[in-house]
Design a protein around this nucleic acid. Sequence first.
DNA 1: ATCATGACTAATG
DNA 2: CCATTAGCCATGA
Length: 89
Amino acid sequence: MSFFAKKVYRVVLGIPMGEVRTYKWVAKKTGRPKASRAVANILKKNPLPLIIPCHRVIRKDGSAGGYLWGKKFKKRLLELEKTLSEQIF
DNA sequence: ATCATGACTAATG
DNA sequence: CCATTAGCCATGA
């Protein structure tokens, strides 16, 4: 576990349910504004797929981006979280 | 140190 | 939607 990776996970863990952030946004929070690609690398290797909400990190252009279990599942999960968070809060 | 990889970004076609 | 080009950077071999 590198220092950079820990910061990435910590930042991603802080993304609220029903909301999304971009790889670039996460990169900037880690202090490396141009390391969006490196952020993607870290998330791909993330040790806790179900705990770390890496599905809330999407592309700058709005598309889902990649996902361990497929981008289409990623989109559905995001919509589910959005509707659920609206009902709960 | 060097090299390849990739869940990126931006621009272009 | 797809493909290419160039820039970018942590990671692992």
